[in-house]
Design a protein around this nucleic acid. Structure first.
Lengths: 346, 346
DNA sequence: TGTTAGCACTCCACATATTTGAGTGCTAAC
DNA sequence: GTTAGCACTCAAATATGTGGAGTGCTAACA
């Protein structure tokens, strides 16, 4: 026998899920039968529920309890049933975020706003610089064998590293190298700094080529892999304590640890970067769809942000599966739109 | 009637506390009576315990339970009773830490080591720079009205800020300012950059004085108040879940929040800076002695570290009151000694 | 006078009934 | 196809009972 997902079943499923999102309690047939727009007795609802359960969309925590959505049920809901709350477009001083000179501050702020608005945990990855252009390099002599390299990228992201040279380097040479490096590399993205450019640069450098080499090595590693650990800004990790299904010992500990360990967080989120972008660049991962063990009871919602000049990264929130998806997606959309307004239109 | 703390009472108190530190269970009179070096019956111990309770050093969670130490009892213990485990002096490759060029990395690492070694949560404040000397300043032109200021202090701490100028600034002027700033300020500590120096500097600057002023303002605020939030490195916050008395919902949430909010942490720890230094610079705060609400059930142990050139800060651990004080103090001492070896002797 | 054995008492922790109520599945009637 | 009705299930809440660890007190002892 073939079970069909007719209109009525969908309506019932939606009602069950929405009710469960609100209350967090298993939903019984009587509750749904009171729903206005489908005037059915609880007995009928029970029959339908039984079907929905057989289809794997809902389940009972135990016999004689109401139903709660399964991961599959949630998936159907976010893909088909949920209606995004129409959001008023950003309007003058209603803007939540404002442009600041330093991108890091903006992103930190973004994480905080998101956590406060949603009451879930939020994370924002620092932008990937690969397509991003170099604004300038500045080498300065620290002492005999130490050079400080300061690199500024588009978006005013500043990074710096100490370079230890094998031989003492003269002040003069540093000035020359500064000129050289800047004239060759400024305006290039990291991927554009290929062998051709580099060998030309070395040629030009003449006897200082070895030093240039060291400098280039350092700079490239400085730009590509983010020195020690990936830069991720998080906020509101403790919000998870607001949801009983996540806040008991074991789980909470694992989740908070994950948030402490930026490298793990990074893995979690990087995959979303490579995935085909669906539904306006917002991705939702429900329960077991998350690779990370500590997230199996969570849902993760991510969005790709873009700051212009190829600077892009991921912003996301982590919360219980029983999450207000509509609100979260809405909030993310709003923030993305505002970022767009600030960085790409003006 | 006057209760005297005689030798025997002290011995019993010490036995109770040490037992409680190990087991985490209230300690009964029979347990102590089995203690080898004071051969007494449980009845006698009970009498003594009754006295110790009256003195406010121990208490019962409920009638007919064993005794646990009060804050006052812990205080007496750490002040008088506890014996620090003698530690082997750092010896070649037993060193836990090694010198690195960037102080930040060292401190981050320090926090991690401390958390892993003790199984408590650790925190390390970035050094206060007030007595620290400027190594050099480097201004670079970013675009018409933006200057990037990079400042390096002794210890190779690098900070940078964007300065927005009112008027476009010529490349020439920046070069001049660089020379000027460095010749006047290099080698000075922030406190030495007083009005005399500054007005002399402005004089010399002539028509560029307004720009210099902006630059100086920015630099001083960059050095003194640590831009956005105080720099504090934390590690192992999730260790608190290992201690049942801290890991239940309410408390754990509060503690983790405190660790997320660096500014609160800072307050907690700053007071230890100003306090008279007792017992080789290690301070212990037990339970209610902590000002911060979320720490009332914790003990905090802090030490002042010093990296030479007046760079100093605080390193500390946070754990349950039932903490292995001897080990913690020992570990801190060892680390301090190693830091000393690295930074102050060589 | 300090120490100890002995005993009654307290109270938590744990286990075991008992009750309650929300919710189900099934059947029979409409 | 829908619904009322009923027996059934099971978690959660509420009593009830028991065991044991630990105490305080008293009276005897060195």
């Amino acid at each position: 026998m073939e079970l069909e997902l007719d209109e009525r079943k969908l309506k019932i499923l939606k009602a069950i899920i929405q009710n469960y999102l609100e209350t967090g309690e298993p939903v019984g047939s009587r509750t749904i039968s009171k729903y206005a727009d489908l005037a059915l007795s609880s007995a009928t609802i029970r029959n339908e529920m039984s079907d929905l359960e057989e289809m794997g969309l809902i389940m009972q925590p135990h016999t004689s309890a109401g139903r709660i959505p399964t991961d599959k049920g949630y998936r159907l809901y976010v893909d088909e049933l949920m209606e995004e709350k129409e959001r008023e477009k950003p309007d003058g001083n209603e803007m939540l975020i404002q442009r600041v000179d330093r991108v890091e501050l903006l992103l930190k702020n973004l994480a905080k706003i998101l956590a406060n608005n949603t009451n879930y945990a939020s994370l924002v990855t620092a932008p990937q610089y690969h397509h991003n252009k170099l604004k300038f390099i500045q080498l300065s002599k620290v002492d005999e064998k130490k050079i400080l390299a300061v690199v500024m990228m588009e978006g005013n992201v500043v990074k710096n590293t100490l370079i230890n040279t094998l031989e003492p380097v003269d002040e003069q040479i540093i000035v020359k190298m500064n000129l050289l490096l800047n004239s060759f590399l400024t305006g290039l993205s990291v991927s554009e700094m290929n062998l051709a450019v580099i060998s030309k640069l070395k040629n030009e450098a003449g006897e200082y080529a070895p030093i240039i080499e060291t400098v280039l090595d350092t700079i490239s590693s400085m730009i590509t892999e983010d020195d020690e650990e990936p830069q991720i800004y998080t906020s509101g990790a403790t919000n998870i304590f607001k949801y009983p299904e996540l806040s008991d010992g074991e789980k909470a500990s694992g989740l908070i640890s994950t948030f402490e360990e930026k490298s793990v967080l990074n893995e979690l989120v990087v995959k979303s970067m490579n995935e085909p972008k669906q539904s306006h660049d917002i991705n939702i991962y429900i329960g077991d769809e998350n690779k990370n063990e500590s997230m199996k009871d969570c849902s993760v919602v991510t969005a790709n942000y873009e700051l212009g000049d190829g600077m892009q990264g991921i912003i996301g929130i982590v919360g219980p599966k029983r999450m207000d998806y509509e609100k979260v997606v809405g909030t993310l959309r709003t923030l993305m739109a505002q970022l767009d307004d600030i960085y790409n239109k003006s």
